[in-house]
Deep mutational scan, measured.
Amino acid sequence: TGYYDVLGVKPDASDNELKKAYRKMALKFHPDKNPDGAEQFKQISQAYEVLSDEKKRQIYDQ
């Protein structure tokens, strides 16, 4: 599964769309709200870390 799929956004998503999707998913799977969501929360955080950084995103998109 790709990072875009993890966040539920298209590859041409804007920074604002990425942030909005990340916040929505992070709230849904945060371990405090969803004890079984810890692994998914890590994936969401990693996806956002890469896609929100312009240089990392360019490398990922290659």
Rank of each mutant, 00 (worst) to 15 (best):
D32Y: 08
T1S: 10
Q46P: 01
K56S: 11
K33Y: 14
E17C: 09
A47H: 01
D53R: 08
E39P: 05
K55V: 12
T1R: 14
Q40I: 14
Y48N: 03
Q58P: 06
V9S: 02
D36G: 12
I44L: 07
Y48L: 03
M25F: 06
D53T: 06
A13S: 04
K20I: 15
E54M: 13
R23D: 14
E39T: 10
Y22F: 14
K56P: 03
L7E: 02
Y22K: 00
D12W: 14
Q58E: 09
M25P: 01
Y60I: 03
K55P: 04
D5Y: 11
Q46N: 10
V50R: 04
N34T: 08
M25S: 03
Q58S: 11
A26R: 13
Y3R: 01
A47R: 01
F41G: 00
G37F: 15
E39R: 07
D32P: 07
Q46L: 14
Q58T: 09
Y4K: 00
D12Y: 09
K10P: 11
K10F: 07
A21M: 02
Q43W: 12
M25N: 04
L27H: 08
Y48S: 03
S45E: 13
K42C: 10
L51H: 00
L7K: 01
K10C: 15
E39A: 09
S45R: 15
A21K: 02
Q40L: 14
Y60P: 02
D53N: 11
H30A: 11
D15Q: 15
L27I: 13
K19M: 12
S52L: 09
Q62K: 11
K19R: 14
G2V: 07
A38Q: 10
H30K: 07
D15G: 11
V50I: 13
T1Y: 15
E39S: 09
L27D: 13
N34G: 06
A26W: 15
A26G: 04
Y3M: 04
G2Q: 10
H30D: 10
K10W: 06
V9L: 08
L51E: 02
K28Y: 11
H30T: 04
P35D: 04
R23E: 15
D61S: 06
D61E: 04
E54R: 15
S45D: 06
D5L: 10
D12R: 03
K24Y: 11
D32N: 12
V9Q: 00
E54D: 09
P11S: 09
Q40T: 09
V9I: 09
T1Q: 13
K19S: 09
K56D: 04
K42G: 04
G37P: 02
L51C: 04
A47C: 04
G2T: 15
Q43M: 15
P31Q: 08
Q40S: 07
N34I: 06
K20L: 13
K33F: 14
K56V: 04
D61C: 05
P31H: 08
R23T: 11
E39G: 05
K28H: 05
K42L: 11
